[in-house]
Design a protein around this nucleic acid. Structure first.
Length: 479
RNA sequence: GGCGCUAUCGUCUAAGGGUUAGGACAGGGCCCUCUCAAGGCUCAGAUCGGGGUUCGAAUCCCCGUAGCGCUACCA
């Protein structure tokens, strides 16, 4: 059985690139009947925060793509240290007593740094003596550089990969404080958690050679690797909160009113496509269309709307979300709308009980012109509240010659109508218009303006039934 | 600096030797219409540059260029 893992480190919020990596892992697992392991890579104790752990978990849960197992890397430390000790004993690793330097070792010229002079060759007894004397050291992997060949593997996305031993530096396994490094912990855990496919960002492509060296030295089989192209900001640089703002944060999309499936659909199309021009895909369709081999090798740009007033995300994401919002079963949409209304303080429990049918009807009618769940809260006030304002355009419609007077007459007709329905309302509106010798459109648009304070919305006759008979009559008289 | 990855409309992408280089978002226009959407139609818009290979190259090869990644006792 295939097993994949998503291994975020809790040093920041869940960002869109991490979410996409999780989605691709999840899709791959579902498509191949495999399992998803969520592993929190918390080996950098100094930078971990509970807040970011919460953000990551919140974000992943919102995606609604459940994982099968969860592990914390910090709880597996003993395994990591044991691995380092055995590597040391086997001579595949060595102690490096070079004092920690400040900042990254940027090579000044010529070739890259490979190892600290003298340490690789240190005699075993001498090394033991200095270690037991309490001298701090880091444990490094001894890359077999005398071998003129190198490491090769076949990436499921980037195909054949090769790197000479001579180009791989002696990376650290254990820090001088005894903590395992990412390379060690990740490799040991992938092996022990029986991960079969490592699907992660392309920024790890060159790390993979080190990991393979470790898998081999540890005597465990190698998993398969698939690296994903990176997500870039509109300026072409790697996405970062500082440079690109809230577009990178998953919770931002949730708060802006995205549906999980709309967001997942959007991210799935960044660096992958089903190759048949289909774009609007539900989760089940994504699973059946997903092929890891169809993942692109080119980095994708996450667009940001530039028009003032638009929410600062990719307009295509909004459009995609709208497609889902409009086509999903209304009953599935209801909980999301409920949440949006609760956020506005407009929710009342009857909407879930005695007025549930009305609620379903209203959501069904209103959603046809919305893209985001949050728009139920910001653009549909008159349907959920009695007090609402009139937009300037609406007032303009009401101010047209004879409109207000006609609407008052209409109120009487509506009040007297025996059966209050879209059909009967339409009949009353049209016949009144005809009697008064005015264009029906004036009355129709005037009604919408009077009932909702807006010039946009569902069919005016539908608006009447949504607002209800007595409220409609009151609102017509109020203008 | 070293090592590596990548390069098609503004953006996401299709076409992996032969197509008027296709679709989608965004933009323009038209239709539909009680408004706004939706929907339908339509216009504009791309193969980074240069060499090869080939009857034929977006596609294969080489060289440039650009972007990105790695080059830490971060992950």
């Amino acid at each position: 059985m295939n097993r994949v893992r998503f291994a975020p480190s809790p040093t920041g919020f869940l960002h869109i690139g991490g979410a996409r990596t999780y989605i691709f892992n999840w899709l791959f697992a579902q498509a191949t009947g495999g399992q998803v392991v969520l592993r929190i890579d918390d080996t950098d104790t100094g930078r971990n925060t509970d807040e970011s752990l919460r953000s990551i978990l919140d974000g992943l849960r919102w995606l609604d793509l459940p994982w099968d197992e969860r592990h914390f890397q910090s709880e597996r430390r003993r395994s990591h240290v044991e691995a380092a000790v055995s590597l040391l004993a086997a001579g595949a690793a060595y102690r490096d007593f070079t004092p920690e330097s400040d900042g990254p070792a940027t090579p000044t010229g010529g070739n890259a740094w490979l190892c600290n002079t003298g340490m690789r060759e240190l005699d075993a007894t001498e090394s033991d003596r200095r270690a037991s004397a309490g001298e701090p050291f880091v444990v490094r992997f001894r890359v077999p550089r005398e071998n003129p060949k190198g490491v090769a593997f076949k990436d499921l996305v980037y195909r054949k990969q090769f790197r000479k031993y001579a180009d791989i530096e002696d990376f650290a396994l254990l820090r001088s404080n005894g903590q395992p490094t990412y390379h060690l912990a990740s490799t040991v855990d992938d092996a022990e958690l029986r991960i079969t496919h490592v699907i992660r960002g392309q920024d790890h492509l060159t790390n993979t050679f080190k990991h393979i060296l470790l898998f081999d030295a540890l005597g465990c089989g190698r998993p398969q690797f698939a690296h994903l192209p990176l997500l870039l900001g509109p300026d072409g640089s790697k996405l970062s909160k500082r440079r690109h703002g809230s577009v990178v944060s998953v919770t931002n999309y949730r708060d802006q009113g995205f549906l999980p499936q709309g967001f997942v659909n959007y991210l799935s199309l960044l660096g992958w496509s089903p190759k048949n021009n289909r774009e609007v895909l539900g989760i089940a369709e994504l699973v059946s269309a997903f092929r890891i081999g169809n993942v692109l090798r080119t980095n994708a740009v996450v667009q940001v709307a530039e028009r003032p007033g638009d929410i600062p995300v990719d307009p295509k994401a909004v459009w995609l979300n709208g497609r889902h919002l409009r086509s999903m079963p209304v009953d599935d949409l209801l909980p999301f709308v409920e949440r949006a209304l609760r956020d506005m303080g407009w929710w009342s429990d009857e909407l879930g009980t005695t007025r549930r049918d009305w609620f379903r009807d209203a959501v069904g009618a209103l959603r046809s012109r919305l893209n985001l769940v949050s728009e139920f809260g910001v653009r549909c006030r008159a349907y959920f509240r009695d007090e609402f304002g009139y937009e300037a355009k609406a007032i303009k419609n009401l101010d047209k010659a004879g409109v207000r007077r006609s609407l008052h007459l209409l109120a009487d007709r509506i009040e007297a109508v025996p059966v209050f329905s879209e059909k009967s309302v339409e009949h009353e509106v049209r016949s009144l218009a005809e009697e008064l010798g005015m264009k029906a459109g004036l009355l129709i648009n005037g009604s919408r303006a009077a009932l909702t304070g807006q010039t946009v919305g569902p069919s005016a006759f539908k608006v009447f039934t949504l607002v209800g008979k007595s409220r409609s009559v009151n609102r017509l008289r109020a203008v």
